[in-house]
Design a protein around this nucleic acid. Structure first.
Lengths: 183, 183
DNA sequence: CACATAAGTGAGTTATCACTTACAAGTGAG
DNA sequence: CTCACTTGTAAGTGATAACTCACTTATGTG
């Protein structure tokens, strides 16, 4: 800490750490991420990170929660004012734009799914995903088959985006993207 | 190596290492896995692992290739003798059974998707996924929309299995699984 | 000004990381 | 038997991992 630096509240620092951890966890996952890198990026020392969050895993879980919160918020904003299948379509479009513009969020989600063999991670992912499903069902009033088809398309789109084949000219890639846009 | 142990060919050892690495990489991903743990599980010293594969990443890439090979083989076996939408249904069922019975394979796939921000991993995943799409399209003759809906359902099923909500009694979980079974 | 409390870090802990070097021993061919 | 080749490891490299301890310094309040 430089001598002229102003102190911040613990809450402000927590925010800074969570923001910094987004990228690191998205790129390397829970096990691969470095608390030292995160602390540096947040502008604090590594010991202070542990004072604020207790452990690397606690920080990760909070980071995953934020990730789902962000997605739900996007859903809400997109669906505002519409209902039924119109809302479904609006949410789908907004989600596509979201992960197209924020690859960090996309990576973070994929890491969270991959991290699901850890019970604590799984629990957080379940809660986050559950809230998304609940919301989509409530706002659209669609049938179980339609709601699950909606999320299926979303999961495929995640993988398409991860593989970065949106603009590929390979036949299988074009087929997959074309078919996906149809939904 | 115990004094009575028989020597094996390098090829046999490579197989043993690849088999051992499956689990470790599936659980922890490329960055989180330990070459020491893998070598021990394969019954060799850690230095020899590096002689056989060059680097941790090379081993990982080979492991991911195997993962997709295994899935494609399952597809082929399932579709044998059928065609059209009948083949699609047979492959879907076989895939469901595959990841239900082999959680390691499921985890390995999710880790591979999450690892896609690394260009080398992405390239291997692209190739593997592409072969799956090519095969499914060829054997089923289905439309792009149907093929992509098929893979979308598969991706959702991956996440359902990862979250372990197949037998959950939460409403959103039942809705998602029910809708998914309908496809 | 004094004092409790909160913010923040330097220096260390032990363990493990990927990877290398140098060397030993089994094995098949001539 | 011998010699080239392959299989295999013991012992180490420096770097970095998560996390702790002892300590300092700023800040709001009476």
């Amino acid at each position: 800490m430089s001598p002229t630096a102003q102190r911040q509240t613990a809450e402000e620092r927590r925010e800074a750490v969570l923001e910094a951890s987004r990228k690191e966890f998205a790129e390397h996952g829970l096990h691969g991420a470095s608390t030292d890198v995160i602390a540096r990026a947040a502008g604090i020392s590594q010991p202070y990170l542990f004072r604020l969050f207790g452990s690397k895993k606690e920080l990760y879980l909070e980071s995953v929660r934020r990730c789902f919160d962000r997605t739900l918020e996007t859903f809400r904003t997109a669906a505002a004012g519409s209902a039924g299948h119109e809302a479904l379509r609006a949410i789908g479009l907004a989600y596509g734009e979201l992960i197209e513009s924020d690859r960090v969020l996309l990576q973070a989600q994929l890491q969270a799914y991959a991290g699901c063999d850890d019970p604590d991670v799984r629990e957080v992912v379940r809660r986050g995903f559950g809230r998304l499903v609940d919301y989509v069902e409530a706002v659209s009033g669609a049938s179980p088959a339609d709601v699950s088809a909606f999320f299926a398309t979303g999961m495929l789109y995640n993988v398409i985006a991860a593989m970065e084949i949106e603009n590929s000219d390979e036949p299988w890639a074009r087929l997959l993207c074309e078919g996906c846009r149809g939904h």
